[in-house]
Computed example of a mutant assay.
Amino acid sequence: MFRGFLADGFAARSGDLAPVERFEVAASVPVSLDDDVERAADHLRPWIALYVGGMGAKGANFHRNAVDLLGYSDAADEIQDLYLAGRKEEAARAVPTALVEDVALVGPAEKIAAELPRWEASAVTTMLLQADADAVRTVVGAAAATGLLTR
């Protein structure tokens, strides 16, 4: 979907602008490294609950809208209702693991390495890793091992 939006925007440009190939799409990608996927996801659930349920207003939340586009409208309704009712821990528990996995890299190093090609297939050209130094080294090592750093 975003590739289509970008293509439409590039087609509408005029003037002497940088080539499309030099356009970067940067995404902040949280990383939670743990041998247990659920435990890794648990570290990020409160953050996702805040963005989905507590940012903006009930009818005007960019982050919530992005989660809707990913197919999590029902979960987002519950998260937002709980968060706005002040039940933040319950809101965090309502964040599905699949949602965490769609917006972050979570779990053991092998799983994260296996998921990197999915990110490369997206419109994202630059990943801004939100992680501690060990997790960053793990992701960079996995990207190097799969050849993603040379592309």
Score class of each variant (00 low, 15 high):
L6Q: 13
A7D: 11
G9M: 07
F10W: 15
A12E: 11
R13E: 14
S14V: 15
G15K: 12
G15N: 10
G15A: 12
D16H: 14
D16P: 11
A18V: 13
A18I: 13
R22H: 14
V25D: 14
A26V: 13
A27G: 11
S28E: 14
V29G: 07
P30D: 10
S32K: 02
L33S: 00
D34V: 08
D34S: 12
D35A: 14
D35Q: 09
D36T: 11
V37P: 02
A40P: 01
D42P: 03
D42W: 06
G56T: 09
G56Q: 11
K58S: 11
K58D: 10
G59S: 10
R64S: 07
A66T: 10
A66G: 10
V67F: 01
L69H: 13
D74A: 15
A75P: 07
A76T: 00
E78W: 03
I79E: 00
R87Y: 04
R87M: 01
A91S: 06
A92T: 03
A94I: 03
A94P: 06
P96Q: 06
L99A: 03
L99W: 00
E101V: 09
D102F: 04
D102L: 07
V103N: 02
A114V: 08
E115K: 07
E120Q: 15
S122H: 14
T125H: 08
T125F: 13
T126N: 07
Q130C: 09
Q130P: 04
A131V: 10
A131I: 10
A145N: 09
T146R: 10
L148M: 12
